[in-house]
Simulated assay, not measured.
Amino acid sequence: MGGYHHGEIAVQERAGFVRPAGQAHGSIDNTVPPVAAAFLAQQPFIVMGGTDERGRIWATQLTGEPGFLTVPEPHTLNIGALPPPEDPLAGLLAGAGSGVGGEPARIGMIGIEPATRRRMRMNGRAFRDGDGLRVELDQVISNCPKYIQKRDHHPVTETGSPASSRTAVDSTELSPGQQRTLRAADTFFVATASDRGDADASHRGGNPGFVQVLSPRLLRWPDYAGNAMFLTLGNLELNPAAGLFVPGWETGASLHLTGSARTVWDEEEVARHPGAQRLVEFEITAVREISAASPLRWSAPAFSRFNPPTTG
């Protein structure tokens, strides 16, 4: 997984981006440098994506006190947390790599610090390790800070266990309230996987309204100029399955969607969306909304100066 697969290369070429000779791998590595290890050690959450036992891709988050993410050696990330039972990836991660010949869970991850607009992506193979995970890293990727809304976090101060009030609601389409959540969203995370199952998780941000709800089962968003690696769109070129995670910054709730996505290249349609270079349409097959999913609460956002205006 050190370089680009043929789906990523195909999208790069269609987008008109050709890497100079000798730069075939761009900024993809498979080790975590010391400065990145220190960054991860300060974070209270990490976003990840993976494929459940039914072959559906989901994105979610794991939380913990700063220090729950550690890098004991450059190729390894330890995560001192597991998802709660209600999480759509709980089954995948609970038994990852367990038993004789047990297969690891192939996951994509993104560590992000909204307060400083820093982020980094890591993809690899997760093994259950006590009450947490050990991830053997295949890809470590630095990303630019564009489209990240600045936020500061603080833990919940109320008494009582978040687990005691946690509930999960499943459906096959968005409720009116969930549609409003998406129309107001300025951030979400998207998980994809290649045709070989190698997973990736990525950040998407913009001004409220950049996510369009076309119907209770169909979303669309603009693909803005980024780092020109096209890891997400490259995976979609080979495998349309995808999952979205929308954090409830103020409430601690989480909205998880799974389905399939496609890239829209039509120039006339793209031109109707300021700043868009392409569009992505996402068809929903399942929805899970979890209350009290996270112990973190976040301040109101300071929007990125890179966010294009929205059409809504």
Rank of each mutant, 00 (worst) to 15 (best):
98 S>F: 15
228 A>W: 14
272 R>V: 03
148 I>P: 05
286 A>E: 11
80 G>L: 01
232 T>W: 05
49 G>K: 09
307 N>A: 06
263 T>Y: 06
102 G>T: 04
106 R>L: 11
212 Q>Y: 13
210 F>S: 04
217 R>G: 11
289 E>M: 05
174 L>H: 00
282 F>M: 04
186 D>P: 01
98 S>I: 15
214 L>E: 08
45 F>I: 14
203 H>F: 10
203 H>A: 11
218 L>A: 03
16 G>L: 09
21 A>D: 15
181 T>Q: 09
7 G>R: 02
275 G>C: 09
223 D>K: 07
144 C>G: 09
86 E>I: 10
135 V>K: 14
42 Q>A: 15
181 T>H: 13
259 G>V: 01
229 M>S: 02
185 A>N: 06
170 D>C: 09
279 L>E: 04
133 L>D: 02
239 N>G: 00
291 S>I: 04
147 Y>K: 05
222 P>M: 13
34 P>S: 04
291 S>G: 11
68 F>R: 07
127 F>P: 05
266 D>C: 09
103 E>Q: 10
141 I>R: 04
12 Q>M: 08
253 A>C: 07
102 G>W: 06
304 S>V: 06
264 V>P: 11
235 N>R: 00
147 Y>S: 12
218 L>G: 02
203 H>M: 05
302 A>P: 10
31 T>L: 12
171 S>E: 03
57 I>E: 06
278 R>L: 07
227 N>I: 09
